[in-house]
Amino acid sequence: MTGRPRWLKLLLYIALVLAGVFFVIPVLWTVVSSFKQENDIQSYPPQWLPSPFTLESYTTVLTQYPYLRWLLNSVVIAVVATLGILVCSTMAAYALARFRFRGRRVLYQLIIVMLLIPIQAYVIPLYLMSSRAHLLNTYPGLVLPLVANVTSIFILHAFFRDLPDELEQAARIDGAGEFRIFWQVMLPLSKPALSTVAILTFIANWNQFLWPLIAVRNDDMMPLPVAISRYWGAVNQNASFQYGTALAACSMAVIPTIVVYLALQRYFVEGIANSGIKG
């Protein structure tokens, strides 16, 4: 921004404010409408503030539906998959960035190419493999396909690659082996990148929809995104759609992602700046 005319800075700030408002308004409308009565949600002209204020939708969600079970499923899937991604992607990225072996560049390029392949391209063979391994309708069947995360390898590889070689050489002079260098030297320095990966992968795993939709048939195993999409069908096929309960379910579903982001936000910007994801 340094050296740019004031009018250009003003236009940029206005554009940022408008973009922020554009994204925030639907979220605010969802939260506010979840405290309204059902008839007031679709009223015209629309009213922003709920009158009267009611918790009826939240009570319905928590008492008439297995919402806590769906929430537990999402927590297990997101947490276990994120931990698996951190372990596997950290070791893979470190090996690709710091070790020298034949075929390293080709292997890394193949991994990067996988960023261009959507899940729709391989969901059928993935389903067949999971079915033959008897992993459908199970936590391992939902978690294991998520652990192979190419984006996290890309972020961590860029971070490990930019770490100074002097740190590694000094550790070797002190008698440290490869695993000790990785565990005691490189990992403590990679907190920003690990936090970035944790936030991005947790949110992505929390919002997983297509694979759980295909791999889960039992209502008790559904994560929140799939359960909300079938909100009435999962419990009562004959019930009419109620916007209030759906909005209340969506509002509560966002809370875990906000908590994770707030807990790791101080590392997030630093990790983005140091991992090669720059605009």
Rank of each mutant, 00 (worst) to 15 (best):
T2C: 06
W7I: 09
L11E: 07
V17E: 10
L18W: 12
V21K: 06
V24E: 05
V24R: 09
V24K: 07
I25E: 10
P26I: 11
V32I: 14
S33F: 11
S34K: 12
F35I: 00
E38V: 03
I41R: 07
Y44S: 06
Q47H: 11
W48F: 14
L55R: 04
L55Q: 04
S57F: 02
Y58V: 02
T59N: 08
T60P: 00
T60S: 10
T63H: 10
N73L: 07
V76E: 01
T82L: 05
T82E: 04
T82W: 09
G84A: 06
L86A: 07
L86E: 03
C88Q: 02
S89V: 01
M91N: 02
M91K: 02
A92N: 05
A97N: 06
F99N: 01
F101W: 15
F101P: 00
R104Y: 10
R105C: 02
V106F: 15
V106Q: 12
L110Y: 06
L116R: 01
I117S: 00
I119C: 03
Y122I: 07
V123M: 13
V123Q: 06
P125K: 03
L128P: 01
S130H: 10
S131P: 01
S131Y: 11
L135C: 07
T138S: 15
Y139W: 09
V143E: 00
L144N: 04
V150D: 00
V150C: 02
T151R: 00
T151Y: 13
T151S: 06
I153G: 00
F154R: 02
L156Q: 06
L156S: 07
L156I: 08
H157K: 11
A158H: 15
F160A: 05
R161T: 02
D165M: 13
E166C: 01
A171V: 07
I173S: 05
D174Q: 08
G175P: 03
A176Y: 12
G177C: 13
G177M: 11
R180K: 13
W183E: 05
M186Q: 13
L187N: 02
A193D: 06
T196A: 13
A198D: 09
A198R: 11
I199G: 08
I199T: 09
L200P: 01
F202P: 11
F202C: 10
I203H: 12
A204T: 12
W206K: 12
F209M: 09
L210F: 15
P212K: 14
L213E: 02
R217P: 00
R217L: 08
N218Q: 15
M222C: 01
L224S: 10
Y231M: 09
W232R: 10
W232L: 02
G233W: 11
V235E: 12
N238I: 09
A239K: 14
S240N: 05
Q242L: 12
Y243I: 03
G244S: 07
G244V: 01
T245L: 03
A246M: 14
M252I: 13
M252Q: 09
V254T: 15
Y261P: 05
Y261K: 10
A263M: 14
A263T: 11
L264H: 09
Q265M: 13
Y267K: 03
E270T: 11
E270I: 03
G271V: 09
I277A: 08
G279L: 10
